[in-house]
Design a protein around this nucleic acid. Structure first.
Lengths: 253, 253
DNA sequence: CAGTGGTCTAGACCACCAC
DNA sequence: TGGTGGTCTAGACCACTGC
């Protein structure tokens, strides 16, 4: 028994445009014909073309820009390897694991520290750190770019009693980064747990990541534990799902 | 600088319906008012209501059924803990890790073996196993349900020289399952790598998983390695992204 | 100012379900 | 047979871009 019903027209058109992009008819970075033009070409209404492009947009294949046109996305998928990114060798390649991941793809990484200091722990971070909501914690909030395109938001939270008076609160955490400073403070992270969710972006996230409201983000919540099994850092990563592939490697216990 | 522009009407309506569901106005499993009724209630066109419900549907919050109405989803998110599911204790709780995961949520698991035997290795499996495309491999294809709702497709591929003549090709792989039989054959899996992608379902996947075409699936490709670092099993899992939360835990190397 | 994509409506037709 | 959701069109107005 095969599938005999034909897909709706907007999906057929989406697939045909998709195929045209894959065939090189519209190379990465190039502009697609305007919607009225595509409507005529495929013999459908402009509304249907708009919907078909919405499908491709939600997959990150195409980027519409009001007043300018619709462009083929030029940023390839980035691989995030969770198991290796805490390793000293990877972190010291550049300024961090993120830098290494992007350079491997020939992309230019840029990372900006948008906030550093003391805040009251938000609910999720407090729970993962085993603290009361509102406890003082150190925050390090970063915004990351690939070829100046925003690709990730990351907020690290560290219990205040660990971070206080250390370079963790400096603009530059120095050689080896945050994890090396946690080690200096006697709380070297030795175990990690990450939880992955996929959801629609908030307004704020959509704005910074230049995302459509119907695309998806990965939310990765990482907890780093020291040798005493104490949670010493929580980091919440938010990134467009279509831009990333996630990889994990571990040994049987 | 805050966000001053108001979101489009279809998103505002989606949020209001979302809030009504969260507030218990429409409990899990209940039927929403018909689209024309909602259109009148919110003072918008039926097309806009249809789009707003499409947003909620793509998040898995709501399940429209043609000819019957639109219902609030009653299946909660399932947590898949990759680090513990290979452990013998977890596997022996029920018939496998999947069973344990669901029972923990009070759901009734069901698993069906839909295919077992020899096939030519498809491209992705062959690459991950380090074999030529088309090499003979054993396949075990399973379909999994929660309360009789389909929630996952999984296909395991094992190199033929390992599987041949073992209970791996039986309907029932016996106590401890596939991994115990690999151990019996001298290829106990000791290391694992999983790669996660998020994409739109194929027609076939959408059909079996009863998904909308604009929802997303997680595709998890797992490779199990034995002590000689030989890949002894590849398993491709496909599951609706909104139904699952993924969890990984590992130690610093 | 002309052209772009974003949104919304009114109206239509269809496939499907329950009665 | 009437009500449901799924799709599609024609037409409109808007915000934004680049000339």
């Amino acid at each position: 028994m095969s599938i005999q019903s034909t897909p709706p027209a907007y999906l057929q058109v989406a697939n045909r445009i998709n195929a045209a992009i894959a065939a090189g008819e519209y190379p990465p970075g190039s502009k697609l014909p305007a919607e009225p033009e595509l409507a005529e070409k495929y013999g459908v209404s402009r509304a249907l073309i708009n919907r078909a492009l919405g499908v491709l947009q939600s997959q990150g294949l195409v980027i519409p820009q009001r007043g300018r046109g619709t462009f083929v996305n030029a940023i390839p998928q980035i691989i995030r390897n969770a198991a290796t990114r805490q390793q000293r060798s990877v972190r010291e390649e550049g300024r961090g694991a993120f830098d290494a991941e992007l350079r491997r793809l020939g992309l230019t990484p840029r990372s900006e520290l948008s906030q550093v200091g003391q805040v009251e722990a938000p609910a999720q971070a407090a729970e993962l750190l085993g603290l009361e909501v509102g406890s003082p914690v150190a925050i390090r909030r970063r915004e990351m770019f690939a070829n100046d395109v925003p690709v990730q938001l990351a907020s690290s939270y560290i219990p205040w009693d660990i971070a206080e008076g250390t370079p963790i609160l400096d603009q530059d955490t120095g050689q080896g980064g945050l994890y090396s400073r946690l080690s200096d403070a006697g709380h070297a992270p030795v175990e990690f747990e990450e939880t992955i969710d996929s959801r629609m972006p908030t307004e704020e996230e959509a704005q910074f990541l230049a995302m459509d409201r119907e695309q998806r983000v990965y939310v990765i919540s990482r907890v780093a534990y020291d040798a005493e099994q104490r949670p010493v850092e929580v980091c919440i990563h938010v990134m467009p799902a279509h831009q990333w592939q996630l990889k994990y490697r571990w040994s049987a216990s």
